[in-house]
Each structure stands twice: as structure tokens, then as C-alpha cells.
């Protein structure tokens, strides 16, 4: 009787709290060969499951049902059920897949093959290779423009951003950037592309408004007491309003917060060691960072631009993706 009363009283309250929905966070652990699953409300680890050899790039289908993981040392992309964590099937990826980007419709998947100087285009429904696009040496970063016209690949030794036309898979533009470009990130309005250069220590700002992409600025970093050589930009995320760019600085153990109006770094947020990739929660309240050498993720309060929590995950966390609402 009392139990029933309690339920009756508290259920509406629980429902009211529901809109701040918990989302699953998936972290690929490069050395641990696992994926760690966390809850974005409690930040508790829900599960850790085997994900093949050297899981790095990680993304999720638009409906949140399928988790794609680059198992680099298995030369394949493994696909998991996000509810049961069962491996459903693998996708042909070409050798040593590291990073990929999914078309907003859920197919195809564009995969960078580091060993073969190729971008492989895979249909996620038929599980077949649709195209192979020769690019520069050591392709790595992948992004798709919001209008889906361009897939951008960065090549680490060639030091270019290659603009692949999604219509005919031909490269239409190349933009030279600084040494070892690792990651490419479009603003939501598609007007700007950011490319991080790990060894060059810069972020190239590429204007997409004209007929051809144009390099307009290079963002540089400086932290007192940290050797310039250790300021190595890798992962990057920009807020949906396009105002703030967050850049992971690898062995500098910091996230740079950049005002995209002025391209000034307004803050460096100290996180875990060797910070690699980033992901927002869908409401953009939090930004998550994978910290490869301290085996944890850091949760950043985006509005406050402050680190609020670190959570241990598997060995050498590399990539992170948050399930959509």
C-alpha cells in the first residue's frame, strides 16, 4: 500500500526530469581492444565490450541503433548493436582503417585507409565497396560538408586537405596545410572548415563560401611553461552555433577554446594526458575528451568552459561518440 503510494507520488517527478535524457557514450580503447559505454547523466560506466584489435575511429548511425568501429589491426569496420553490444557484421574497409565519416543519411561510410593512400566508400546497407578514391600519403582526417557535397580527407604526409566530390568521387580541390593534418571539422552552416595539424601545431581555417575552398587563417597556440613542440592539435569540435571551436592539444594535455570570430584562443582547459578526440552531448551541454595516456575521459561543461569530471575508461581511449537523442 505504501509502495503504491510512493510510486504514484514520484512518477510524475521522474518523468519531469526525463527531458535531460541520458545518452549512451561510446569510447574506443585503442590498447584495451574494447569499447567502454557510459551514461551521460551519471557518467557511470555501464559496460565494456570487446571491439576487435586496435579500435580507433568510432561513429553511430543517425537512428542510434548501430555503432561503427574501425578495428585498425583487423583491417575491418566492426558494426555493433548499441543495445545488446553484439557484433552484427563487419564492413569491408580496406587496410588499416583509422578514421571515417558517415553520410548524415546513414550511408555511405567514407573511410580513410592509412596504408593504401585511399579513401574507401562503403555502402552500409549492401555492405559493399562503392568506390575507392586515391588521395595523398597517409589519409587520416575525414569530414563531410553539411550539404553533403564534399567529403574532406586530410593526408598526413602529403599535408593536404583533399575535397572529394560526393557526386562522382573525384578530387576537385586540394588545400595545402601544415605538417601532419589529423582532423577536419565543418561548422554546421558549412561556411568554414577547420583542419588541425599535429606536427605543424596549427589549425587551418578554410573558407568554403567561394567557388573553391580558400585558406584564410592559421590558428596558433601558446601555453606558458609548455614547450611549443608539445602543442599538437588533433581532435576538434565546433559548437552548432559556430561560435566556439574546441581543439584537443595531444601531449599538452589541454583543450584550447577558440572564439571563431577573432580566432583567438580564450582559454586552455587542463584535461587528462595525451588528449585525442572530442564529442559533444546532443544538447551541447557537455564536451567529452579521450585521454590516451591517463586512461580516462574528461567531461567539460561547455557553457562554463570548465572541466568538471574525469571518468576512468579502458586502456588508451582514442575515439568517442555520443548516441543521438
Amino acid at each position: 500500500m505504501r509502495l503504491a503510494f510512493l510510486s504514484a507520488c514520484c512518477l510524475p517527478a521522474l518523468l519531469a526530469a526525463a527531458p535531460a535524457a541520458a545518452n549512451k557514450v561510446f569510447v574506443s580503447n585503442e590498447r584495451g581492444n574494447t569499447v567502454t559505454v557510459l551514461d551521460s547523466e551519471t557518467w557511470a560506466v555501464i559496460e565494456e565490450f570487446d571491439a576487435g584489435n586496435r579500435p580507433r575511429g568510432i561513429t553511430i548511425s543517425p537512428d542510434g541503433a548501430l555503432l561503427y568501429v574501425c578495428a585498425s589491426d583487423d583491417d575491418t569496420v566492426r558494426v555493433f548493436d548499441t543495445e545488446t553490444y553484439e557484433e552484427l557484421y563487419t564492413l569491408p574497409s580496406g587496410p588499416d582503417p583509422e578514421l571515417f565519416v558517415l553520410h548524415p543519411s546513414g550511408s555511405p561510410l567514407y573511410i580513410a585507409n592509412e596504408d593504401d593512400n585511399l579513401v574507401t566508400v562503403v555502402d552500409t546497407e549492401s555492405h559493399t565497396v562503392e568506390a575507392e578514391v586515391p588521395v595523398g600519403v597517409e589519409p587520416e582526417g575525414m569530414a563531410i560538408s553539411p550539404d553533403t557535397r564534399w567529403v574532406v580527407n586530410t593526408s598526413e604526409t602529403t599535408n593536404m586537405a583533399h575535397f572529394i566530390d560526393t557526386g562522382d568521387y573525384a578530387i576537385k580541390h586540394n588545400v595545402l596545410v601544415d605538417q601532419r593534418p589529423r582532423y577536419a571539422e565543418f561548422t554546421d552552416d558549412g561556411k568554414t572548415l577547420f583542419v588541425t595539424s599535429e606536427i605543424g601545431g596549427t589549425v587551418s581555417v578554410i573558407d568554403m563560401k567561394g567557388d573553391a575552398p580558400e585558406l584564410v587563417h592559421k590558428i596558433e597556440f601558446e601555453v606558458p611553461g609548455v614547450l611549443p613542440e608539445w602543442l599538437q592539435p588533433v581532435g576538434a569540435k565546433v559548437t552548432s552555433d559556430g561560435k566556439w571551436l574546441f581543439v584537443a592539444l595531444g601531449p599538452a594535455n589541454r583543450i584550447a577554446v577558440i572564439d571563431t570570430e577573432s580566432y583567438e584562443v580564450v582559454k586552455y582547459i587542463l584535461v587528462g594526458q595525451r588528449v585525442w578526440q572530442l564529442a559533444f552531448t546532443p544538447d551541447e551541454e557537455y564536451l567529452l575528451t579521450t585521454n590516451g595516456n591517463s586512461n580516462d575521459i574528461t567531461v567539460i561543461d561547455v557553457a562554463a568552459q570548465e572541466a568538471i569530471k574525469s571518468v576512468p575508461v579502458g586502456q588508451q581511449p582514442w575515439g568517442v561518440v555520443v548516441a543521438p537523442d
Binding site: 593536404m160 573525384a170 578530387i171 580541390h173 580558400e214 585558406l215
Partner: peptide
Amino acid sequence: GMVMASWSV
């Protein structure tokens, strides 16, 4: 070289 429609560099 591949056929390039235009060159940014």
C-alpha cells in the same frame, strides 16, 4: 595525375 576540375593550390 587525376583530372582536377580546379586547383586551390
